[in-house]
Design a protein around this nucleic acid. Sequence first.
RNA 1: GGAGAGGUGGCAGAGCCUGGCUGAAUGCGCCGCACUCGAAAUGCGGUAUGGUCAUUGACCAUCGGGGGUUCGAAUCCCUCCCUCUCCGCCA
Length: 422
Amino acid sequence: MLSLSRIRENTDAVQKGVSLKGEDIDFSLLLNLDEQHRKLLTEINDLRAKRNRASEEIANVKRAGGDAVEAITAMREVGEQIKSLESEADDLQEKIKSTVEVIPNVPHESVPIGSSEKDNKVVREWGEKPEFDYTIKDHIEIGTSLRLFDFERSAKISGTGFPLFTGQGAKLERALINFMLDYHLDHHGYTEIFPPFLTRGSAPFTCGQLPKFAEDMYFTGKDELYLIPTAEVPVTNIHKDEILEEQDLPKYYTAYSACFRREAGSYGKETRGLLRVHQFNKVEMVKFVTPESSYEELELLVTHAEAILQTLGLHYRVIELCTGDLSFSAAKCYDLEVWSPAENTWLEVSSCSNFEDFQARRGNIRYRRSSNHKTDFVHTLNGSGVATPRLTVALLESYQTPDGKVIVPKALQPYVGTEVLG
RNA sequence: GGAGAGGUGGCAGAGCCUGGCUGAAUGCGCCGCACUCGAAAUGCGGUAUGGUCAUUGACCAUCGGGGGUUCGAAUCCCUCCCUCUCCGCCA
């Protein structure tokens, strides 16, 4: 959430920022409401001060055994006046709040300007496209013939988009999760978290999924709980309404979770196999840092996600998202895209973002500066480290052999317990 | 599912019955000063957050959320939310 004072004092910059994200917001309306609201507050403030003084006076008179009927009658009227102004102010406040909470974060100045995906910038590429001197199979063919997963049967259970992993496929899934968690714990200094997968509405509000993107989330009507679309949601809210100590920052958390996404409105080729699913597994990294360090931390975060792909020996590239492709809450974001030989395209497996104080404000996550003991909002970041479905696609396709088997990358072998699948 | 207890500042914890210098005792923590070669201990002082207006500053709000009673609510009433304990059921 953007602060009202920022909107008020830097209207042009904010206006420009959100328009670069493709949002056309009429700020004059909001500013008008805000001005009315503050005017009203001043008025109420003065009346309340008056009432407080009078009440004190009445207390004194009564204590002295006097009679204060006159003052009481006079104040009764003031009370009514205050009440009516207050309800007016509350209405305005409500309007302002509902407007502000759907305004997206402003992109960082370093973010390339652009309107869509096509304007994203390739920052770097790692490794090389695997070469094959035979006709390769795609991940669905490989997985089906090796019985790693079974989409027909999973459709019977849950419908399309809910993968059912079987045998070595199930073990591979578990191996990837464990490998990634261990890697971040052993090499990057994260603390492991195993979060709840259902949360209250306040948790996705913090992160920015609510109220604007409620349609994208699974919701259990009866208990009013949301299924998490990412571990970011529960993990970011670990410190909701807290004041952290500066010396305890940065805090690094990594968590596995199942992720649930309705993916409303996405049909067609992209939904084939594991490319876009309603439930998937992901290891997420979440950081709570000081404002001064957040951009440094973002660069570091990207390298943490990259380390997974490098260790698995997968060809990938790092994309810097342009302003128009940034998500609602992000100020800056890098995507990691892994190469799929059969799809002959890049697949997004990670998204690493700096939210600055946008989420921290929504979730009231603060820290106390050790220099002056004042509180300020932390900066939050998160990145996938990484999501398994497309990782599996790249893995199966890149490491397939002419006889239809799949070589397991060395780092993964202890986890899978075999050198070859099939 | 049934019964009960409770939500107060960075933390712990009074106050609520009996409404009025209580924005909130006390302790811990933290900061400053003194003592000390230094530290510990001790002593003294300070230490919530947000907002409105303004030059220092003034004022206002906030004791889980909302509503009500009242001149005045942490304190009384209603309502919602949350947490904990016991019993039952259950992986």
